[in-house]
């Protein structure tokens, strides 16, 4: 059984090397060293040229470009941000200006109105004063008229009383006496 396996396995392997490798580790098979070293050197040289001529400069440029783009984008964002801040400041300033302007206009209008009101009050006062004096004049006039009427009535009455008494007195002296008494 074991022999069969041996034969079978042996047949599978490539004849000469099965025998070569059999004694120990294939790693210690000195006869293959030259081959490995030769191909390794070829491989490393090829990889070195592939990397240093094509791959690494390309990747470096891509990374640098990306870094540049990111830096630029950040700078642009920074600029936009400062622009937005400036716009906000301008807006705030405009708002404040408008507020003060509105306040000024309101105060002005108020002052103007006050002037009008003051003028109207003065005018009204003057009119009132005029009317008052007019009224007083008329009252005085009426009072004067009333006094005159009292004198008239008193005179007439006195004359009638004097006539009824049968005393002959001239009108002038009756009037004087009446005037004297009424005054008193």
């Amino acid at each position: 059984m074991a022999t069969e396996t041996l034969v079978g396995e042996g047949a599978l392997e490539t004849g000469s090397h099965a025998a070569e490798a059999a004694p120990g580790l294939p790693q210690l098979d000195v006869s293959t060293f030259a081959n490995q070293i030769f191909w390794l050197v070829v491989t490393l040289v090829v990889i070195y040229f592939v990397l240093s001529r094509v791959a690494l400069p390309r990747i470096a440029s891509v990374l640098a470009e990306r870094q540049g783009t990111i830096t630029n984008d950040i700078a642009a964002a920074e600029e936009l941000k400062s622009k937005a801040a400036a716009a906000e400041a301008a807006y705030d300033k405009a708002l404040a200006d408008a507020r003060t302007e509105a306040g000024r206009i309101a105060a002005e209008a108020k002052a103007e109105m006050q002037d009008d009101v003051d003028a109207a009050i003065v005018k009204a006062d003057a009119e009132i004063a005029a009317r008052t004096s007019e009224g007083e004049a008329r009252i005085a006039e009426i009072r004067e008229g009333a006094a005159e009427a009292v004198h008239e009535v008193a005179r007439d009455t006195a004359r009638a009383v004097v006539a009824a008494l049968g005393v002959d007195v001239d009108d002038a002296s009756v009037d004087a006496a009446v005037a004297n008494n009424v005054k008193g």
């Binding site: 090397h17 099965a18 580790l25 294939p26 030259a34 081959n35 490995q36 390794l40």
Partner: peptide
């Protein structure tokens, strides 16, 4: 377990010299 490490020519048999195209190649 060590057979996987055997260096052998890729095409045909024969001795492995420095320039033989092997599985290493």
């Amino acid at each position: 377990p060590m057979d996987q490490f055997i260096v052998q020519p890729l095409f045909g048999d024969g001795p492995v010299n420095a320039f033989t195209i092997t599985n290493v190649t």
